[in-house]
Nucleic acid binder design. Structure first.
Lengths: 208, 208
DNA sequence: TTATATCTGTAGCGACCGATACAGAGTCAA
DNA sequence: TTGACTCTGTATCGGTCGCTACAGATATAA
């Protein structure tokens, strides 16, 4: 946020960087994931990334830009394939069953401190970090939109009752998905998340 | 948390307090609700409560104790009656339909900055505020337990399919409820929350 | 009246926050 | 070899955090 919209400079001249930028980003992601955006301090980030503050600011701009880069990395690494599978599986019941099954895995994955970064990392932020939360909200809105679109297609293909409101069902599915992050953060096991995920089949009005 | 477990002293001697303790607590609740636990600074709390820091610390102990007192006030004021109604209504379908309907109202109530304090106020906290989050988790666990007990009773009274896992269904209902707080925080309208609430009837396996 | 106790406002404590000034080190083009 | 350039570590900036020392004000109890 703030001033510089450009992301990574690094021309060919000058002293070369002595750390792995991608590895440092992944380390930063771990801290943001565990702590959330604001509780993750620059000093803790630097310790995890094994660099000093000037290196962090030279490579990533500022804390907000580092965070958003970590969020993008998180989305592409953990969720993109799952979202796309949901869009590709022909039967909507099968697609959503698979999606929530995979979500239960992701939200309790080994390297995850549990829960989704996009949902949890900026739920409480002070006024000056509202821009960061707004950026995350765009991701969340997109997720709800994907679910709504998938439901709408399921209706038009006759797999879900024709009188179903796609936006309402998409919102409900997204609400359950976001709730699963809170459950994971509160220590729900993978089996418990699978139980929640399995309830999705009951939420879909089958075509009579 | 920390040292003093006792809450309000105030003997009969000494200079009397010149502000309304209950009114100040309600003002503090508003700030915690809007901002969350850690982003709510002492200076912002003091401004809203119209007192100075020494008065705050004399009357409430410290920030964590003030917060927990605000949480207790919030629970009793906004949720206790709704929880008890759910326990009292004989038919479980009617009880849960009514509960989620009321929850949709509470989570979008006028004086609410949207969402549940217990769910949202401490999702991102630094390490030293983990005790506060643990206290909130106890509230959240209690909510899930109430839902589970109500489901179990519905099963034993033959209103829900006998092969239903009460803990699993209780957890699922609680997950949807907690997700509704995130939806409200992201700007969902009362009508949208009502739509989500209405989906609960499909989650309950009717007794065949 | 005096002693004791508690509240009130001012003013500021040490600790930490995000972010940087600076000088030295390393790599490039000329 | 020189100069331009960028990264590196140290040391620190101004600002805010939660919290409190202090002195004055106001009440009760003796």
């Amino acid at each position: 946020m703030t001033d510089t919209p450009i992301i990574p400079p690094h021309k060919s001249k000058g002293r070369p960087r002595t750390f792995d930028r991608d590895a440092a980003l992944i380390s930063a992601l771990g801290v943001f994931w565990r702590r959330g955006y604001e509780p993750a301090s620059i000093s803790e980030l630097c310790a995890a990334m094994e660099i000093n503050p000037p290196s962090l600011y030279a490579a990533f701009g500022n804390k907000a830009q580092l965070f958003m880069e970590a969020v993008n990395h998180y989305e592409t690494t953990y969720w993109d394939a799952t979202w796309e599978r949901m869009a590709e599986v022909p039967d909507v019941h099968e697609a959503l069953r698979g999606f929530f099954h995979e979500a239960a895995q992701i939200l309790t994955s080994q390297d995850a401190p549990c829960g989704c970064l996009v949902i949890l990392a900026a739920t409480n932020v002070s006024a000056e970090a509202e821009e960061v939360n707004a950026s995350l909200k765009a991701f969340r809105d997109e997720g709800r939109e994907w679910l709504t679109r998938r439901v709408r297609r399921g209706i038009s293909e006759g797999q879900i009752a024709g009188d179903t409101d796609p936006a309402g069902l998409g919102l409900t599915l997204n609400t359950l998905l976001e709730g699963m992050s809170l459950a994971a953060r509160d220590g729900a096991t993978r089996e418990e998340l699978e139980t929640i995920a399995a309830s999705v089949q009951r939420l879909l009005p089958a075509n009579a």
